[in-house]
Amino acid sequence: RDWSERMLAATGLDVSHMPGLVESSAVAGQLREELRREWGIDGPVVVAGGAGDNAASAVGIGVIQAGDAFLSLGSSGVLFAATARHAPNPQQGVHAFCHCLPGQWHQMSVILSAAASLHWLSGVVGREVAELVAGAEHLNATQQTQAPIFLPYLNGERTPHNDANAKGVLFGMTPAHDAAHLAYAVMEGVAFAMADGYAALQAAGTVLQSAALVGGGSRSAFWGELCATALGIPLRRHAGAEVGAALGAARLGRLAHRGEDVAKVCVAPEILETYHPDSGRQEQLMRRLAQYRRLYASLAEEFSRFSRT
């Protein structure tokens, strides 16, 4: 919540060159009069400090107290946890920042290809995403166990490996596998990557009781339950989760304008559904998660060599 004089000195600057800092929910300025008139707005308009997309999503979904969290299955995947203190884990690529609310902090684990992995598969096999998801849902437990293992590192990986050289892998392919097996493998691999991210947060001291589920992937109850089982915590789908960032930004503007109590403004929307870990599938998933982790460990050096060729 202040400029780093050491970092500024490294760039040949000092604090005198920098703008003043305000909290995200505080007044940063006023909308210019000419713009207000051009846009037909009556009266002065407060401009709040604002926030990045994930922090704003947290405010929109009610993730405002230490222990609150959300899991986002967008193009990338994010596990965002509010914390009461700065709790970094740079060795495993955990982001640790100020939250966009006074006195609060947050951590994030980030994977670079979540729903993007499913869209990639859709393009490769020429099937719509919805068709692929439906096919994966109809596999029985034995068929799921026989599916390939997918490492979703199509664009490298951030948490927990911080490895730009990592590559996507489908391991264990046979002639018996079809598009449904591949779709399941991709959805499971993303769930495993999120479980790895949660393990990195846990290594930094964060233990979650549950989390909200947001992003386009949250529309799939099957994927939601798969992630809940892999992480071992319930996931809640809230009304309006798809507009969380916009709602959060609006709430920050309201707080700046009115100075209201954060807890009264930044409430969680209605819970539509809760996905609980499936105890009947947990042992199976944990065996496959262990294999998933061994695969990266075995291939990390090869990824680096491959990237140098």
Rank of each mutant, 00 (worst) to 15 (best):
E273K: 09
A66F: 07
R308P: 01
V267I: 12
V243W: 14
D178M: 04
D53H: 03
G189H: 00
L285P: 00
L73P: 01
G60S: 00
G280S: 11
R305K: 15
S25E: 04
R293V: 11
H95Y: 10
Q65V: 15
S218C: 06
G74W: 07
G103N: 10
H138R: 14
Y153K: 11
L132T: 13
G156R: 09
G77Y: 07
V190T: 09
Y292I: 04
R251S: 03
L154E: 09
S24R: 02
P44H: 09
F97L: 02
L231S: 06
T206L: 05
H177Q: 07
T145E: 10
G215R: 01
H119R: 10
L213W: 11
A221Y: 07
I64C: 04
T159C: 14
A130S: 14
T11L: 12
V129H: 14
L285W: 01
A82G: 12
L71M: 12
A290C: 04
H106S: 08
L21D: 10
Y184A: 04
M108P: 11
I271C: 10
C100W: 01
L73Y: 03
Y153I: 08
F171I: 05
W223A: 03
D14V: 02
R288C: 09
D163V: 02
P19N: 06
G77T: 06
A211Y: 08
A56G: 01
A239W: 12
L132G: 14
A147E: 08
V110R: 02
N155L: 10
G93E: 08
V129G: 13
R293K: 13
H95C: 05
Q65K: 15
I149L: 13
G172N: 13
A249D: 06
G172V: 07
S57D: 06
P44Q: 12
A136V: 03
S24W: 01
G123R: 15
L118E: 01
V63Q: 14
L21G: 05
E38S: 00
G244D: 03
I41V: 15
A26E: 14
V125H: 10
R6Y: 15
H17E: 13
S76M: 04
K264E: 10
G74F: 07
R305F: 15
E225P: 01
V125Q: 11
L299M: 13
P102L: 00
M187W: 02
G216T: 09
Q104G: 04
W105K: 15
L118C: 05
F222V: 02
E131R: 07
A211S: 09
G135W: 05
V207R: 03
S279Q: 14
A81G: 05
A56S: 08
H276T: 02
T206V: 06
Y292R: 03
V22C: 00
A191E: 09
L289M: 07
D178T: 04
P152R: 02
A164V: 14
P44V: 05
N89L: 11
E283V: 13
A87D: 08
G244F: 07
S304V: 15
T142K: 11
I64R: 02
T142Y: 12
A87W: 05
S75A: 14
V59H: 08
G49Y: 06
A249W: 03
P152D: 06
G240F: 06
W3A: 12
M18V: 01
L132N: 08
Q91Y: 06
A256C: 03
V133Q: 00
E131A: 13
V129S: 14
G244A: 14
D261C: 15
M7R: 11
V169K: 08
L35F: 00
A180D: 08
A256P: 02
F192W: 06
L299N: 05
